[in-house]
Design a binder for these strands. Structure first.
Lengths: 196, 196
DNA sequence: GCGCTACTATGACCACTGTCATAGTCGGCT
DNA sequence: AGCCGACTATGACAGTGGTCATAGTAGCGC
């Protein structure tokens, strides 16, 4: 996931996202980001003249694009594409990560929203945009599975909301139970939307 | 909601929860809490010898008890108690708050989880306990409405997860759309669990 | 060689954090 | 009155945050 062979700028954005996932926006320092990215500290002000706000916003945007791109990958991995299968795959990414890596990390977009929604408006907008770039391909995938166009966007919102909440609870409990539970409970509803 | 007539200790716990709701745990300072509670700064170390960690944990526990107690209130407010109606009432608390107060505040338990799940284990446990004290009366309410005992807990987890995620998205978008959407989409599933 | 740009390297600044130490005040008990 | 516990009031400490200023280096066109 890391791919060390990228420019220092990209590495810093990536590291910022990774550190925000852990402890939130306020708890991640600029110096810490540079160190984690093995990038010179002086490059921070050079690549991100807008300061921390710019760096955080780019990290959030990056996370949104990443989540959006994953939807396509999940679709390819499903032999029999169904809404519930897609949702299960989305959740499985987290259960897998938690299974072998501990429960240290959450969703960076959620962290940015919690920490910046009331203070930094640009970051809040970045988070909203990230959710949108995640939701769009998801709704498109649902339509491709036979979900009526009018239900695709609402169901995508439901899926993302439920997943985000389950991630929260799973981290708090240090147990994947919430993730597996919502997959099991929400699956039938999602599949029932096909051809209806 | 404030009720200024309480001891300074309770006021500080309450203020801590309120400030954590806004900007997260790391961004809320002890001095800020004392000032917000109109309590003397010297009382912090007197009432909370465990420092910030203790204060935050108590704020999270308080939030959990508050959410749990609200379930009963919502039930009383429903003339025809149904799972979907209860879920709608839970979400309405947030849409009401966002309608006339802006989107400044989120759930303190979510904020504590995001900020402390990987660093402060005691706070993480407090968050898990808060979710539990919220989930228990909710599951009990569902059973009271005719939901089979085996489905009550999973459905309660689903409801809380979905609500938490919708709160997140609503704050990011500065729009109650996610909240109203998940209420509309999840309602039928919840009601279908009655007598089945 | 010069000059220019891209990038790196440090050190300093001020604001602020959580925590501790110390002194002060108040009320009630005996 | 004296005393003692609960609580309040402040100041100081060491650490860290983001940001700025300044100087240095590498590479390239000329």
């Amino acid at each position: 996931m890391t791919e060390a062979r990228r420019g220092p700028r990209e590495r810093m954005v990536f590291s910022a996202a990774q550190l925000i996932r852990r402890g939130g926006v306020t708890a991640t320092g600029m110096r810490e980001v540079a160190e984690h990215a093995q990038a010179p500290r002086g490059s921070l002000q050079h690549y991100f003249p807008g300061g921390k706000e710019q760096l955080v916003n780019e990290a959030v945007e990056w996370a949104g694009r990443y989540a959006g791109r994953r939807i396509g990958r999940f679709l390819e991995g499903l032999e029999q594409p169904t809404p519930s299968g897609l949702f299960a795959a989305m959740a499985a990414q987290w259960t897998d990560e938690y299974a072998d890596g501990g429960f240290a990390t959450g969703c960076p977009v959620a962290a940015a929203t919690v920490d910046c929604a009331s203070t930094g408006d640009s970051t809040r907008q970045a988070a909203a945009a990230a959710f949108a770039t995640w939701r769009a391909p998801l709704a498109e995938a649902l339509r491709g599975m036979g979900v009526p166009a009018a239900r695709a966007e609402p169901l995508a919102t439901l899926m993302i909301s439920t997943l985000e909440g389950a991630i929260l609870m799973a981290r708090a409990e240090r147990d994947v139970r919430p993730l597996t539970t919502v997959v099991r409970e929400l699956g039938p509803l999602l599949d029932a939307a096909v051809h209806s």
